[in-house]
């Protein structure tokens, strides 16, 4: 190590590395915190309930969270096929 390196270190100080790393990780973590992280789970559970009564595929249920003015709007779209049949498990007993 030269004397020059000693007086003018080229490596950034560890504190500024720490700050950068923190900013990146927190930006990522905060994005998952606005409440939308439950959507996939909601979609799955809705699917489980709907398929009890009507035979639908996974991609026929869409859940999204949007904004309308000041309010958040939870939108749930369920596509029911014309030929929808009750799921056999819940058909009326013979």
């Amino acid at each position: 190590m030269s004397l020059f390196d000693y007086f003018f270190p080229r490596k950034p100080a560890s504190a500024s590395v720490a700050k950068e790393r923190l900013q990146i990780v927190l930006a990522h973590e905060r994005s998952g915190r606005d409440g939308t992280d439950f959507l996939p789970r909601l979609q799955k559970e809705l699917l489980a309930v709907v398929t009890k009564y009507v035979a639908v595929e996974e991609d026929m249920i869409r859940v999204s969270l949007g904004k309308a003015g000041n309010a958040s709007v939870l939108e749930i779209n369920v596509e029911v096929p014309h030929t929808a049949k009750p799921t056999p498990a819940h058909a009326a007993p013979a």
């Binding site: 100080a13 560890s14 504190a15």
Partner: peptide, 9 residues
Amino acid sequence: KGEMLSVED
């Protein structure tokens, strides 16, 4: 010394 995050950070 740059070893610790500052108040401002």
